[in-house]
Amino acid sequence: MTLRSPIEVPLRIRTSHGELALFSTMATFGAPADVTLSELAIELCHPLDQATGQALCALAR
């Protein structure tokens, strides 16, 4: 599989549903002076290919 970006690193997981290929994005909140939000981060995983997207949709049902 061709990477779309030089910083994109795929996460491949072998499961009973086949190999799932994912990539993630990280969102952080707040400003450096905002102590309450400085440690808050959310990581979102997205399917890297159509087969993974279909497998995840089937598992969600």
Rank of each mutant, 00 (worst) to 15 (best):
T28E: 10
F23Y: 06
L48S: 10
I13S: 01
A33R: 14
F23R: 01
L40Q: 07
R14S: 12
Q54D: 04
A31K: 13
A60Q: 10
F29K: 13
G18T: 00
P6W: 11
C57A: 15
T52A: 01
I42M: 10
R61Y: 10
A33Q: 13
E19C: 01
P10L: 01
T36E: 14
I42Q: 12
P6V: 08
A33D: 15
Q54T: 06
S16T: 13
T2V: 08
I42F: 10
G18W: 02
I42C: 07
A31C: 10
A21K: 01
L22V: 02
C57H: 13
S38R: 14
E19N: 07
L59F: 03
H17W: 06
A33E: 15
V35C: 08
L44H: 14
A27K: 08
D49L: 05
L22F: 03
E8W: 08
A31Y: 07
P10W: 03
G53C: 03
D34Y: 04
A21R: 02
G53T: 01
T25A: 13
G53A: 04
V9Y: 14
L59D: 00
R14W: 12
P6K: 11
H46G: 04
L20V: 00
P32A: 11
S5V: 08
L11W: 07
E43Q: 15
H17V: 05
L44T: 15
C57L: 14
A55I: 04
L40S: 07
S16K: 03
F29I: 08
L37N: 11
D49A: 05
A58K: 05
A55H: 02
F23N: 01
L40Y: 05
E39A: 15
L44Y: 12
R61A: 10
S38Y: 06
V35L: 09
A60L: 07
S24H: 01
L20W: 00
A21Q: 02
L20M: 00
S38Q: 07
Q50R: 13
L37R: 12
L59E: 00
T15Q: 11
L3A: 09
T36F: 08
A21E: 01
L37C: 06
P6Y: 10
C45Q: 04
A58R: 09
M1Y: 02
A58I: 04
V35E: 15
A31G: 12
H17S: 06
T28P: 01
T36A: 11
T28H: 11
R4Y: 00
L11Y: 05
A55F: 05
V35N: 05
Q54V: 03
P6H: 12
F23M: 04
T36G: 05
L40P: 02
S38W: 06
